[in-house]
Nucleic acid binder design. Structure first.
Length: 424
RNA sequence: AGAGGAGUGGCAGAGUGGUCGAAUGCGGUGGUCUUGAAAACCAUUGUACCGUAAGGUACCGGGGGUUCGAAUCCCUCCUCCUCUGCCA
C-alpha cells in the first residue's frame, strides 16, 4: 500500500508510474484519495475538539461532585449529551471515510522503478541476460511427464487418488531428489548469509493482509474455514510477517532469511493443456529468500539476490535467462522484478523458476515494518524476496536436459545430497 | 477439550471508576563529578494521527458496550500459565 503522504508529494511520479502499468483511471483515483484524506483530517480535527471539550467537562464534573455541588454537576451532565452525540456522528463519518480511503489505496499498485519497461504482456519483458548452452537432445527426447512415468519417480495419478489434480506423489529417487534440492538450496543460502527459519505453513488473516494476499486475492489461497486460516502460497508470507508491527534499529539491518516450505496455490482458472506435468501444481516445494533492508540499500540487495539465484542455476548447470518484467507483467506489490527462467529442452520452453522483487516500502507500509533513524525518527523499511528456488520446474528441466539413453544424469552438486549419480 | 488464573510502557511491576499516558525499580540516552572508568547525582526516555507552532486526540492483549468520566465495570474474541483429559 502506498502512503498518502507519498502520493501527495509525488503526484506526477505516481501517475507516470501507474501509466507504465497501464493502470486505468489513475488521475481520478489519486484525486479521490487526496480528497478523502483531506476529509479524514478535517473530521478528526473537529472530533478532537469535541473530545477535548468533553474531557474538560468530565473533569469539572468530577471536581464539582467532590465539592458536593451535586446540582451544578447534573447541569453539566446534561450539556455533555449533545457533545457525545455529535462526537459519535463524527467518529462514524471518519471511520467511513477511512474505510473508503483504505479501499482505494488497496487498489493502487506499487510504483514501478524507472528501469521497468512499458508493456502490457509477458512478450514485452526485456531479456537482460542469457547464460549457458541449450543442450542438443538426441532424437526421441522425452518431455518430463513421460520421463517420470518411465522411471517411476513422480506419480500424478496417485496424487489424484489421495487429493486431486496437481498434488503429485514423489517416489523413490524422485522423492530423494526433492530432498536433495531442498537441502542444497538451504545450505547455499546459509553460506550466502541467509538465516534459516521454519515458519508455519498456515497463516491467519492479519498475515494475509500484511503481505498483500488479502484482500482480493483470497481466491488464490486454500482456506481453512474452521479456523479462518489460509495455506501459504509462498514462504514469503509467514517469513515477512515475522516482522509485522516491528521497529528495528539500523544496526539490525539487513535482515536476511531463508526458509523451505511447501506452497499451496489454487490456480483457479489458470489450468490448461500448456501446464502439463510439473509446469504448474497446486502443491509444490520452494526455498524462499527474504531480505529486509535500509531504503538506501534495497536495490543493491536486489542485485545481490539476483546474482545469488543465478549462482544456483549455474551450479546446477541449467541454461537460464533473466527477464526484467514490464509494467503490465509486474506484480501488484513490486517496484522491480527479475524473473529467472530455465530452458526445458524437451518441451523447448523457458520455465519461470524464480522471481526476485524489491517491494520498496509498499509491503512495509501495510506491515508497519519500520526502523529508527539516527535522529530517532521511525521510517518504513524496504522488503525484498525471491525464490531460491522453486522445485518442480527445476526438476522438469533437470530431467529433460540431462536425459541419456542410460538414464537421467543428476547434476554434480546434488550427488552428495541424494547419494546417486543416475536416475535409471 | 474441561476447570481455574492472568495479560499494563524495552523489561520487571504498582494502579480496581475521576486531575492516570499511567507510581516505582531496572535498562537506554544526555549531563555533572573524574586523568579515565565505575559508583553517585541530575535530566531525559512509547506509538500513531491532527496542527506551521503552541498544543490537541487516540492507544494499558484485540473488538464492542455501560458511564458526565474506564487501565479499572460488563460482553466477546485472542494469547499465556496451572491442573485434568487427549495426542504425534
Amino acid at each position: 500500500m502506498l502512503q498518502v503522504a507519498f502520493i501527495r508529494a509525488h503526484k506526477e511520479k505516481v501517475l507516470q508510474g501507474l501509466n507504465v502499468r497501464n493502470f486505468k483511471d489513475a488521475a481520478r483515483q489519486v484525486e479521490e484519495i487526496i480528497r478523502l484524506d483531506d476529509q479524514r483530517k478535517q473530521l478528526q480535527q473537529q472530533n478532537d475538539e469535541l473530545l477535548a471539550r468533553g474531557k474538560a467537562m468530565a473533569k469539572e464534573i468530577g471536581l464539582l461532585m467532590r465539592a458536593g455541588k451535586q446540582e451544578e454537576a447534573h447541569e453539566r451532565k446534561a450539556q455533555t449529551a449533545e457533545l457525545k452525540a455529535r462526537s459519535k456522528a463524527l467518529t462514524e463519518q471518519r471511520k467511513a471515510t477511512e474505510a473508503e480511503l483504505t479501499q482505494l489505496l488497496y487498489n493502487i499498485p506499487n510504483i514501478p522503478h524507472p528501469k521497468v519497461p512499458a508493456g502490457t504482456t509477458e512478450a514485452d519483458n526485456i531479456v537482460a541476460k542469457e547464460v549457458g548452452e541449450i543442450p542438443a537432445l538426441p532424437e526421441g527426447a522425452k518431455p518430463h511427464w513421460e520421463l517420470i512415468e518411465e522411471y517411476d519417480i513422480i506419480d500424478f495419478n496417485l496424487g489424484v487418488k489421495i487429493t486431486g489434480a496437481g498434488f503429485p506423489v514423489y517416489k523413490g529417487k524422485g522423492a530423494k531428489l526433492q530432498r536433495a534440492l531442498i537441502n542444497f538450496f538451504l545450505d547455499e543460502a546459509e553460506k550466502a548469509g541467509f538465516t534459516e527459519v521454519q515458519p508455519p505453513i498456515v497463516i491467519n488473516e492479519d498475515s494475509g493482509y500484511g503481505t498483500g494476499q488479502l484482500p482480493d486475492k483470497e481466491g488464490q489461497m486454500y482456506h481453512v474455514a474452521s479456523e479462518n486460516f489460509y495455506l501459504i502460497p509462498t514462504a514469503e508470507v509467514p517469513i515477512t510477517n515475522m516482522y509485522r508491527d516491528v521497529i528495528l534499529t539500523e544496526e539490525q539491518l539487513p535482515i536476511k532469511h531463508v526458509g523451505y516450505t511447501p506452497c499451496f496455490r489454487r490456480e483457479a482458472g489458470s489450468w490448461g493443456s500448456h501446464v502439463r506435468g510439473l509446469n504448474r501444481l497446486h502443491q509444490f516445494d520452494k526455498v524462499e529468500i527474504v531480505q529486509i533492508q535500509h531504503p538506501d540499500k534495497s536495490y543493491e540487495a536486489l542485485e545481490e539476490m539476483s546474482g545469488y539465484i543465478q549462482s544456483l542455476l549455474q551450479k546446477l548447470a541449467l541454461p537460464y535467462r533473466v527477464l526484467v518484467l514490464c509494467g503490465g507483467d509486474l506484480g501488484f506489490t513490486s517496484a522491480l522484478t527479475y524473473d529467472m527462467e530455465v530452458y526445458s529442452a524437451a518441451q523447448q520452453k523457458w520455465l519461470e523458476v524464480s522471481s526476485v522483487s524489491n517491494f520498496e516500502n509498499f509491503q512495509a507500509n501495510r506491515l508497519k515494518l519500520r526502523y529508527k533513524t539516527a535522529d530517532k525518527k521511525t521510517q518504513l523499511l524496504h522488503t525484498l524476496n525471491g525464490s531460491a528456488l522453486a522445485l518442480p520446474r527445476i526438476v522438469a528441466a533437470i530431467l529433460e536436459n540431462n536425459q541419456t539413453p542410460d538414464g537421467i544424469k543428476v547434476p554434480g552438486v546434488l550427488v552428495p545430497y541424494c547419494g546417486f549419480r543416475m536416475i535409471d
